[in-house]
Design a protein around this nucleic acid. Structure first.
Lengths: 226, 226
DNA sequence: TAGATTGTTAATCGATTAACAATC
DNA sequence: TAGATTGTTAATCGATTAACAATC
């Protein structure tokens, strides 16, 4: 209902929508690679694994990038979403904790290709310093502040054991990192304004286990013979 | 309002609650290790990083395991949640795709300690067969059906490149796997009744990037000089 | 103009939170 | 009995979905 100027780009996107934008971006990249010029909300929604009404609602928060009766221009929409997320620019990232998972993250090609550049790998263990992982020297954790300042790092990844994670987070925040991706199985407390997302592998498995148990367990639990 | 017998354990737990139960379980394990016998919903909620009203509501779906005026018995509640999730038993798990991430997952100690047992590591690449990772031989992907049948595997982990993931999922489902944890950056389609959870590292970073941009971008976007 | 498909409204659904009666 | 804290109700909030007017 409210008139929108071209500079007022419809702020305040719901969290649930923000979390799906990267999924749409990936689907659009797939369509672009398949040389698809145009797609309907129905097609894009299918590729992204969501309901088309939800897709249209989500996109409506960004602006009006489709054409009624026609659909969306794949390349144009792809760019608009990338711009909205912020992945048209390059984000310097620091990874702390170069164990098995840190190794895997450092080598993960999906970061590079989506606008993230790993500028440093840090580890508190001196025996790891100097090791080269994914073409990058592992450096002492104490270099954190210097590296964050030098590269303007806003995003830090924690792949340390749980006991170290809060300390690492505190140091990151003090150094100026405002967003943290936490792989350590622990709850981090951070000041207002700092964003933490957590990826917890064993929690994901536990959620699955619950559902397996439900599916099988009904028989067992109710002891209802046929 | 409805009377509950001891065998009717209050089914139908909301998804959001299910996803938090493992977090509570971990917090309780932490309290138990610290020799805390009893805790209030306030304390447990703080340890889990949630609101205490939400914690109590969540726990109320499991049953009535606290004591008014007193709180919860840590060990007792820990066991009840573990039982509800299903991690009092052992879950055999298969990991497919033994690249960097597969290595990290195979070595992840958090699985073992939480009731998950990696029974096989599979990879389609013959050059990887016979390699020993985390004490387990890497086997051909074609052994999948045999392994699933032999160990009664219900949970499969996909850590392959995106292009292979759908095929792997199809084979897993056909072999009898009913729950899949997918690390490949692609949308899987599976039949009704099969559960898929996805962990997408680059999507997590993109969500963070969006928020960083919002925090910084407001200045830049609105061009509002002080 | 007729057919297609968006963008938006309104309805529904589910999740969170505050408040408090029940009760230890 | 008085204080503490649960378990539950009811209010609020946010997310999803169906439906359709707008419009290409």
């Amino acid at each position: 209902m409210t008139a929108r100027t071209s500079t007022d780009a419809g702020r305040d996107i719901p969290e649930a929508t923000v979390a799906r934008l990267p999924v749409y971006l990936r689907a659009l990249t797939g369509l672009a690679e398949a040389r698809t010029a145009t797609c309907s909300s129905e097609e894009l929604a299918a590729a992204a694994g969501v309901n088309s009404a939800m897709l249209r609602k989500d996109l409506s928060y960004l602006g009006s990038y489709g054409t009624r009766g026609v659909g969306y221009d794949v390349e144009y929409l792809r760019y608009q979403i990338a711009r909205e997320i912020g992945v048209t620019q390059d984000w310097p990232v620091v990874i702390v904790g170069i164990g098995n998972l840190g190794h895997a993250l450092a080598n993960y090609s999906g970061f590079r290709s989506r606008g993230f550049r790993v500028v440093a790998l840090l580890d508190a263990d001196p025996s790891r310093h100097g090791e080269v992982v994914a073409g990058i020297d592992v450096q002492p954790f104490d270099d954190l502040e210097e590296i964050v300042a030098e590269h303007g790092v806003a995003i830090g990844v924690i792949a340390t054991p749980a006991v170290a994670a809060q300390d690492v987070a505190d140091r990151m925040v003090a150094a100026g990192v405002s967003s943290i991706l936490n792989f350590a199985p622990t709850v981090l407390s951070v000041p207002e304004g700092v964003d933490v997302r957590k990826v917890d592998l064993s929690i994901e498995l536990q959620i699955l286990a619950y559902h397996v148990q439900r599916k099988n367990g009904i028989v067992e639990a109710e002891e209802e013979p046929a």
